[in-house]
Nucleic acid binder design. Structure first.
Lengths: 190, 190
DNA sequence: TTAAAAGTAGACAGAACTGTCTCCTTTTGC
DNA sequence: GCAAAAGGAGACAGTTCTGTCTACTTTTAA
C-alpha cells in the first residue's frame, strides 16, 4: 500500500462513520478497523481523535462552499445567485447518505464547556463564513436592505436543512426557494 | 428524604446535564452523583439509561406544547395564534440555559441504525405533533392554501431556533415573525 | 404493627474507549 | 544505495461507562 494513501483512507472511513453514527459514538478502533490501517499509523497522522474531528469539519466546510459556489455561479445577478443556493440544498438533500448538516449536528456535541477549542473554532468559522457568503451576495443585490434579509435567507437555508433531515422531505429546498424569491422581489422592487 | 422525590431528582439532574453537555456525553454515574440518589434507586426507576432518555424527551415535548399553546392562546384569529408562536420562541431563546432544540440535537445522536426505537419514536412524534399543531392553525386560517404554508412556517421556526443557538442572536424570533406575517398576509388576501 | 416497597452506600463485572509502546517491514527521497 | 520516514500487527495501561449485586435502613400502607 502507498504510504501517502493511509491518511486519506482514515479520513474517508471517518467521514462515513461520523456521518452514519455521529462523531462521539464512533470509536477510534472502529475507524482504524474500517480504514484498514494500523493504530500507530493513525496516531502518526492525528495526535488525537480531536485532530481527526477537526480535519473532518475542515473538509466538510471546504466541500460545502465548493458546492454553494458551484451553484451560485449559475446565476447572473446576485439575486439569482442567492436563489441558486437552494438548488445546492436540493442536490444535497437528495444524496442517499444525507444525515443533516454536520455543523448543526456538531453544535449538539461540541458547543459546550470543555469541548476542544479547535473543534469549536471549526464550527464557529463555518457559520460565520456561511453568513458572510450570503451577506456578500445580498450586499451587492440590495445594498440598502441586506442587513434585514441576510438572517431571513439564512433561516430559510437552516430551516430547510433541519426539516429535510427530520422528515426526509426533499421538497423543502424548493419550497424555501420560493419564499426566498418573494423576499428578494419585495426588497428589490422598492 | 421522601421516597417519591427520588425519581424527580433524577430527572431534574438529567435535564440539566443533558442540556449542558449532551445526552451521550452525560454518564449515569454523573447523574446519580448530582441527583444525590443511590445507584440502585436509579435502576429501580429506570431499567436502563435509555428509559431515562425517553422520559427526558417526553417531558421536553410536554413543556414545548404547553409553551406553544400558552402563547397561541393570546391570539384571536388562527393567523394571530400562528404569529404568537414566534413570541414563544423569543421567550425560549432568552432563557439563560438555552442550548438549542433538544429534539434537533437528539436527531444528531439518535437518528441512526441501532438507536433505541423508543427514543426514535419520541423524536418522530415530536416533529409530527409540531407539524400537526401548525397545520391545525393554518387549516382554519387559510383552508385553501395551508398545505403550502405549513412547511414554510415550520422552516421559519426551525431556522430561527438553530440560528439562535449557533449565533446566540435572540432577534431571530422577531425577524422570522415578520417573514411569517408577510407570508400569512399574502395568502390571506387572495 | 408489620410486611412490602423504596432508599442508601458502594463494590464489582464486563465492555468500550483513548492513547502508548514494541518489534518488525516497506516505501520514499536524496 | 541507504537512511529516514511511514506502515503493519497488536499487546497493554488507564480510564470510563452501563448495569448488577450485597447488606442494611427508612418509609409507606394495609
Amino acid at each position: 500500500m502507498k504510504p501517502r494513501a493511509s491518511k486519506e483512507k482514515i479520513v474517508l472511513a471517518a467521514e462515513r462513520l461520523f456521518n452514519d453514527n455521529g462523531v462521539h459514538s464512533t470509536g477510534i478502533d472502529r475507524i482504524i478497523k474500517e480504514s484498514g490501517v494500523a493504530k500507530k499509523t493513525f496516531y502518526h497522522h492525528f495526535p488525537s481523535k480531536n485532530d481527526l474531528i477537526a480535519e473532518y469539519f475542515r473538509r466538510k466546510d471546504l466541500r460545502w462552499f465548493e458546492r454553494l459556489e458551484k451553484f451560485a455561479a449559475k446565476g447572473k445577478t446576485p439575486q439569482e445567485k442567492t436563489l441558486f443556493l437552494f438548488d445546492a440544498l436540493k442536490e444535497w438533500f437528495q444524496e442517499p447518505d444525507f444525515q443533516g448538516c454536520p455543523f448543526i449536528r456538531g453544535l449538539s456535541e461540541f458547543n459546550k464547556e470543555g469541548a476542544d477549542p479547535k473543534i469549536r473554532q471549526c464550527l464557529d468559522e463555518h457559520f460565520s463564513r456561511t453568513t458572510h457568503l450570503v451577506e456578500a451576495l445580498l450586499k451587492e443585490g440590495c445594498p440598502k436592505e441586506y442587513k434585514k434579509i441576510v438572517p431571513q435567507i439564512l433561516s430559510l437555508i437552516c430551516g430547510a436543512t433541519v426539516l429535510a433531515h427530520a422528515t426526509g422531505d426533499v421538497r423543502l429546498a424548493k419550497i424555501n426557494k420560493k419564499v426566498a424569491l418573494e423576499l428578494l422581489e419585495k426588497h428589490t422592487r422598492k
